[in-house]
């Protein structure tokens, strides 16, 4: 018998397969390895952000600050490297620590002062965006050798296709996060907190530490996504990654993670990001369809998936009684 807990993720995977098949059937040139790899190249930063968000949502929280933290990371990196001449070897670790610290502080406020995660991370979102503009209002273009080198490196794969270093980073993050989620105590504690925070507390689990670490991890992922985004765009700008928090949440939900917490898969999130990518690719192949259809379709998918989750959880309740 099929395990019920895999239903959402299978639906998601089926959706991706159907969409990719439909695209391949309809458009010439769609069915190629490179189209698939381009999905990864263009969405590497989103994958990394969404992985961090998956942990937050699994633990029953939400993090609205991710897009702003990405922007801040690009801005700090660009400014330090270009305007102050710092070495990337110092700057990159520095921004990663900065992102993690930012998350830690938000997590601590959420946990200790019992303020809704939504509002605390909203403040974080304002703050990070605002800090970008304190650094500079304008785009800072990056010409640093290391950054351009990484940006231009293409890793050749069989069949005349290639991927970027960003993709390698993103895939490594996904693999690491799957391990973290399923094979470490930290990961399992996150699921436990999402299932029932009070139970987790009564079972003697380190709730405070785990919750704060989860936000720290999300902050770290956003910062790493910011680094990847810097490689991708070769610039720092306060308007980078506007509204990315919504794309991220959408990817996580479409990936089968319950917004109420407790259930979710990093692998599902990965597929969720790819689905968004396929929608964009199809729309660009279609030519006559405009980019805003992406938002409408994602909104629609979000609606369907949330409704689907709702029905699943309702059935679970009725089964119990």
């Amino acid at each position: 018998m099929l395990n019920r807990k895999y239903v959402p993720i299978l639906v998601t995977f089926g959706l991706l397969a159907v969409m990719f098949a439909a695209g391949s059937f309809r458009y010439t040139g769609f069915f190629s390895a490179q189209v698939l790899f381009n999905l990864l190249i263009d969405n590497a930063f989103l994958i990394i952000t969404a992985v961090g968000m998956t942990f937050v949502i699994v633990a029953g929280g939400i993090d609205l600050s991710v897009g702003s933290v990405i922007a801040l990371t690009t801005m700090v990196s660009a400014s330090l490297v270009e305007q102050h001449g710092w070495s990337p070897a110092v700057v990159i670790p520095l921004v990663l620590v900065m992102g993690a610290t930012f998350g830690t502080i938000m997590g601590a406020i959420i946990h200790y002062f019992k303020i809704q995660p939504f509002i605390v991370t909203l403040a974080g979102m304002f703050l990070a965006r605002g800090l970008c503009y304190i650094i500079s209002i304008d785009t800072i273009t990056i010409t640093n050798g290391f950054f351009t080198k990484v940006a231009q490196t293409k890793i050749a794969l069989p069949g005349d296709s290639f991927i970027s270093i960003n993709v390698v980073i993103a895939l490594a993050v996904v693999a690491g996060a799957i391990y973290l989620a399923h094979y470490t105590r930290f990961g399992r504690n996150a699921y436990a907190i999402g299932g029932s925070e009070q139970s987790a507390l009564l079972m003697g689990l380190p709730v405070a530490r785990t919750k704060i670490l989860i936000y720290a991890f999300s902050g770290f992922c956003s910062a790493l996504a910011g680094v990847v985004f810097t490689f991708y765009m070769l610039s720092g700008y306060g308007l980078h990654a506007m509204g990315l928090e919504l794309d991220t949440i959408a990817a996580v939900v479409i990936g089968g993670t319950l917004l109420t917490g407790g259930v979710g898969y990093v692998a599902g999130t990965f597929i969720g990001v790819l689905i968004q990518g396929v929608i964009q690719t199809i729309i660009s192949f279609e030519g006559t369809l405009s980019s805003w259809w992406t938002k409408i379709v994602i909104g629609l998918l979000l609606f369907v998936f949330i409704l689907f989750q709702r029905l699943l959880s309702e059935r679970r309740v009725s089964l119990k009684t």
Binding site: R188, Y191, A192, G194, G195, S196, S199, A200, G262
Partner: peptide, 10 residues
């Protein structure tokens, strides 16, 4: 007071 989403063994 257990976590309904985790497995029995967990």
């Amino acid at each position: 007071n257990l976590c309904p989403n985790l497995t029995v063994a967990e």
